[in-house]
Design a protein around this nucleic acid. Structure first.
Lengths: 331, 331
DNA sequence: ATTAGCACTTGTCAAGTAAAAGTGCTAATT
DNA sequence: AATTAGCACTTTTACTTGACAAGTGCTAAT
C-alpha cells in the first residue's frame, strides 16, 4: 500500500516527533533524505491519506496518528537492538543477588521510570484464586492481636484487631479450627465457608464467638484484590503534552487511581508484550500503555509503563522484554 | 496594637478570601461594615503596615499574609463551633463498630479529603523504637517462604524470601533461636544483635547459614520507617492557586513523596493540633499543613491535612480535633 | 473620626499586525 | 514519470495598542 520510501519517511517522522515533540515539516525532512521538500510533501500527503499522519492545523508539519504509531510498532521499529547503557543499568539491578525478587522488580521499574520519565506500574497478580495456606494470630496486649493470613502463593494480609474479654484459649481454638477446616480453600470462598462451617461450631464451643467471627471475617473481607504499586507518578508532569494542560493531568491521575482500569490491564491474558496506543489505553487519547505479564516460580504479576503516545516505543519494549526474561529466568 | 475593628476586618477578609480566592477590596468590605470604603481603606492600610495583609499589586484588593493567617488562627477563629453537617458525617464513620480502628482512621481522612478538597496524610508512628515481638516463617514451596515480623505495638512486616536447599529443620532452628534470643530488642538494634548473637551460633549448627542469615537480615533491614498513606493527592489540582501553575504542582507533589519531609512532620512531638502556615509547611509558601498526633491503646501516629494557605482553618482544626478525640476515646 | 472625591496604577481583555512555519498546487526540469 | 522550484495561502505565535474595571492613596470637607 505504501512505498518503501514512504515507510522510511514515516519512521523518521515518528523518531523525530518522539524526540522533540514538535510537528515535523518537509523542510526538516529534506535534510535527512536527499530529496527536495516538495517531494517529501507529496509522500507526506499520501501518508496522511492513508491515515498514518496528521496535521495539527492546516499549515503545520505532520504528526504521527495512532494508526501511524501502530504501524511503527508493528513493522518499523528494531525491537532487538537494546541500548547498551539501558542494558547495563538494568543488569546491575538484576545481578544484585542480595535482593529478593520483588525488590528487583520494584527497583528495575523505578529505574525505568527515572531513565525514561514515564510512570511505571507493578500489579501483583489477582489473589482471589490463591488458596488459603495458613492463618496465624499474635497477641499484642490484653485487648488486641494481629491476624495474619498467608496464601499458597505467598500473598500475606495482616490486620490489627481489637477484642474485648476474649481468652487466648478461645482464640487458639478458633484459629485451629480454621486451619484444619478451611485451609486450601480459594480466598474468595473463605468468607462463605467461615460463615457456614466455622460460625456454627464456634457458636457452640467458644465464648465471645460473635467478636471472633467478626474479626476473622473482616480480615478476609479486606483481602486486597490486587496489589498496586505506581512508581514515578510525577513524571507525567514533565511530559510537554500534559504539562500545559491541567485537565489532562487531572484525567490521567484519576485514571491511575481507578482500580477498574488497573484490573482491566491485568486481566488481559496475553503473555507477550502488548502496546495500547492512545484511546486503546483507556486513559487518554494522548497516552500509551505498554505492558507485559511475568511469571516466575515465586511470583507473578503484570508490569506496565504509562507514558505519552509520543513514547519511545522501541526503548520501552526492549526494556520490558529484558525485565520479563530476567524475572522468568530467576528460578 | 490593632483595634477591635481592625481585628474584625482582618477576620472578614480572611473568611472572604478563603471562600472566594479573590483579593478583597474596600468596596466589598463596606457592605459588610456600615462604614465607607475610605474608612475601611485606612484600616486596611494599617493592617498592611502591621504585616497582616498584602497586596498582589499596587491597586489590588488585600490578601492575608502568612502573619495574617497566623493571627487569625491564634486569635480570631471560633475553634469550638463545629459544622453540624461535618460532625454528622464523621460520626457515621466513628459509630460504625464493624470497622477496625485503622480503617476508621483511613475512612475518616478519606471523608475529610472529599469534603474539603484537601489532601490528607496518615503517618503510622515511627516503629524504630518498637520492640521485636515475634518472628514467624511460613513455607510456600520447596524454595521459598514468607518471613513475618511482628512488633510489640502491632506493626507487621513481611517478605517473600527464596532459599535454595535449606531444610525446614534449619529454618526452624534459626527462627527459634531468634525468638528466644532477640525478642524484646528494639527494631533498630536487631540487625546488630542478629550479626553478633545469631550469626556465630547458626554458623556452627546450621547448614546454609549464609543464606538464612541474609534472608532475615534483609527483612529487618527493610523494616519500613514510617507507614505513609496519602489520600486525595489529586485534590491539589482543584485548588485555584495550583491549578494554574504546573511548577507549583510539581513542587508540591515531589514534596509529598519526600520521606524526609514526612518524617519531619511526624517528629514534631507536640500532641496538640498544630498549624504550619506557608513557608512553615516546608512544602511551598502557598501551602498550609495542619497536623496532630494521636495515640490510642492500640495504635499511634500522626494525621495531617495539606491544603492551600488559603485554607478553611476553622473547619479543618475542628475536624481534626474531633477525630483525635474519638480515636483516643476508643479504648 | 469619618467620608467624598479624584488622580493614579495595574491587570485583563479584545483587536490588530507582522513574522515564521509549513502546506498544496502548478508549471518547469530531469 | 518522478522530482523540483516557486508561489499563494493558512494558521500560529508573539507583540502592540487601547479601553475598561477594580482598587488604591491622598486631600479636603463633614
Amino acid at each position: 500500500m505504501i512505498s518503501d520510501r514512504q515507510e522510511k519517511i514515516l519512521k523518521v517522522i515518528v523518531d523525530l516527533y518522539v524526540k522533540d515533540a514538535k510537528p515535523v515539516g518537509s523542510k526538516l525532512l529534506s535534510k535527512k533524505f536527499k530529496l527536495s521538500s516538495a517531494t517529501l510533501r507529496n509522500d507526506m500527503m499520501e501518508l496522511e491519506n492513508q491515515g498514518l499522519l496528521e496535521k495539527t492545523h492546516t499549515s503545520s508539519g505532520r504528526v504521527p496518528s495512532s494508526k501511524g504509531y501502530r504501524y511503527y510498532v508493528d513493522h518499523l521499529m528494531d525491537t532487538k537492538k537494546m541500548d547498551a547503557d539501558d542494558m547495563l543499568k538494568l543488569q546491575i539491578v538484576f545481578q544484585n543477588s542480595q535482593l529478593a525478587l520483588s525488590d528487583v522488580i520494584t527497583n528495575s521499574l523505578q529505574l525505568i521510570s527515572d531513565m525514561t520519565n514515564y510512570t511505571t506500574i507493578v500489579l501483583g497478580s489477582d489473589s482471589h484464586d490463591n488458596l488459603l495456606k495458613q492463618i496465624e494470630t499474635i497477641p499484642i496486649d490484653e485487648s488486641s492481636m494481629v491476624v495474619l493470613i498467608v496464601t499458597d502463593r505467598g500473598h500475606v494480609e495482616h490486620k490489627n484487631v481489637t477484642l474485648k474479654n476474649v481468652s487466648s484459649e478461645d482464640i487458639k481454638k478458633t484459629v485451629n479450627l480454621i486451619n484444619s477446616l478451611i485451609v486450601g480453600t480459594p480466598i474468595d470462598q473463605v468468607s462463605t465457608k467461615l460463615e457456614f462451617e466455622i460460625k456454627p461450631i464456634i457458636g457452640k464451643y467458644v465464648k465471645q464467638h460473635e467478636q471472633l467471627y467478626n474479626a476473622f471475617y473482616q480480615v478476609f473481607n479486606d483481602f486486597t484484590d490486587t496489589q498496586v504499586n505506581v512508581v514515578g507518578r510525577n513524571k507525567i508532569l514533565d511530559q510537554p503534552e500534559f504539562s500545559s494542560n491541567i485537565d489532562k493531568i487531572k484525567k490521567v491521575y484519576n485514571k491511575l487511581e481507578d482500580k477498574e482500569l488497573l484490573r482491566s490491564i491485568e486481566e488481559d491474558n496475553d503473555n507477550n508484550i502488548k502496546v495500547y496506543i492512545g484511546k486503546e489505553s483507556n486513559i487518554d487519547e494522548d497516552v500509551t500503555v505498554i505492558k507485559t505479564k511475568f511469571k516466575s516460580s515465586n511470583q507473578e504479576g503484570t508490569i506496565a509503563i504509562v507514558g505519552p503516545k509520543r513514547m519511545e516505543y522501541n526503548r520501552v519494549v526492549n526494556m520490558l522484554e529484558y525485565i520479563k526474561e530476567n524475572i522468568e529466568r530467576q528460578d
